[in-house]
Structures are given as C-alpha cells and as structure tokens.
C-alpha cells in the first residue's frame, strides 16, 4: 500500500506538479507515464526515500528499509565493477535472515527463474544489457519487499526477458505486493491489467492504462 498526501517533488526547490494525493492498494500495479523530464523517476526516488519530497508526506504501511525495494536504471550500475553476476544478485539478501544453505538454494532458484543459471559466473563486463537487466530484476526479487519500485524495468529486455518480467510482476501482484513502475511503453502496458499515473505540469491523472491508450490522441504523446 502507498498513500501520498499533498505530495510535491522536483529539483532545485521547484515542484514539478501541483500537490498530489494518491492511494495505491496492496497488490496493485501502477505505471507512471509522462514525457521526458516530467518527474517519473524522481517520483520513484521520493517514494523509495532516496530523495526528499518538497512537500507532503508518504505512508507506505511498511518500514522504508526492508519494506521497499528499488530497481535503478542501468546507467547507475558500474558495468566494469569486478564481480560476478551471482554476487550482484546476492546483494538482494542484504536484509535477509536466511541461513547459508537456504540462501544458496534460493539464489539458485531465482537465477533459474530469470534464465541466468548459465551466466552466474560471468563478470558484469561480459553481460549484455538485457542480461544485466535480468540480473538486477533477480536481485530485486530476492529482497522480499512489499513495495516494489521499478524504474524502466523493460529496458534492454528482449521478448523472452519481457515474458519473464511480466510473469514475475503478475506473481508479485498475486502475493499482495504494491508495484509502481516507470515506463515509456504505453502500447505494451495496455496488454496488462494495470493503472496508469500520468504526470504533467498541470497535475496528475490516474486511470486504467487502457483508457490512456484510448485517449492517447487527445492527451498527446505522453509516453
């Protein structure tokens, strides 16, 4: 669950939108859409506690640390860092209380779920963009957080990767987790049952994503 009350965010003290009130239920999936620079990624960072809001408050119903997990955009990850893929994914255990054997089994299962078993000993430098993205998503899925914030999760994924992503998203929804993702792929999103949150200077609009698709012409190129 995510509740925002009078939330404003932006850089340099200038809010990007009028105050926003928002309620996202547990098990819901919300796609944040909007043009470049509208503040989609910034909103995710504010909800994740990485940036401070300019005004308002956010109630997550869970502890910020451990209750929330954040998928950063790939460019924030150092591709030349000297570790292997399995070590990157294992960082998802940061707050886990599992024993060593349980971790090993869970890691193996998660790598298999994301089609990464054969790549687990590869260095990050040798991974393609799509493989790295799947590794970051596998790390996210090890965190067991109730609130999942995904900044452009579809980036660099091929059809197989996209299939894995949406299978996991649906599973996370069934488990009652709250998902918010930033996406530019309005057409792709319209195949799934999710809400859209359009961010614009005049304010935010929340509606089923198919409605945005239907009214795309009227709204202009929003995503």
């Amino acid at each position: 669950m995510i509740e925002c009350h009078g939330l404003q965010w932006g850089a340099g003290g200038r809010p990007l939108t009028p105050p926003v009130d928002l309620q996202l239920a547990a098990g819901s999936l919300t796609a944040v859409i909007g043009s470049n620079g509208s503040g989609k990624s910034s909103l995710l960072k504010v909800i994740a506690g990485l940036d401070r809001p300019l005004a308002g408050r956010i109630d997550l119903g869970v502890s910020l640390l451990g209750g929330v997990s954040y998928l950063p955009q790939q460019q924030h990850v150092d591709r030349q860092f000297p570790i292997r893929l399995a070590e990157l994914v294992s960082a998802g255990f940061w707050r886990s209380r599992l024993g060593r054997d349980e971790r090993r089994a869970r890691l193996r299962q998660t790598l298999a779920d994301w089609g990464l078993l054969d790549l687990q000993t590869q260095g990050l430098h040798a991974l393609s963009g799509g493989e790295l993205q799947r590794a970051l998503l596998a790390r996210l899925s090890l965190t067991d957080a109730q609130v999942l914030l995904l900044d452009e999760p579809e980036a660099a994924l091929d059809d197989v990767g996209l299939g894995l992503l949406w299978r996991h998203i649906e599973r996370w929804q069934r488990e009652g987790r709250t998902l918010v993702l930033v996406s530019h792929n309005l057409a792709g999103l319209s195949h799934h049952h999710c809400d859209g949150l359009l961010i614009a200077r005049s304010g935010c609009i929340k509606a089923p994503i198919r409605q945005f698709m239907a009214e795309r012409q009227r709204l202009g190129q929003v995503a």
Binding site: H76, W94, R95
Partner: peptide
Amino acid sequence: YRALALDSLDPLFLRSISR
C-alpha cells in the same frame, strides 16, 4: 566490505536498502 562494494557498484540500490 559489502557496503563499500555495493556503494561503488550501485549506490542507489544500497541507499534504498540500507543507511
């Protein structure tokens, strides 16, 4: 070690899971 490594590799992710 773990915090330093993750802070160098992916600082945003570390900040989201640890202070």
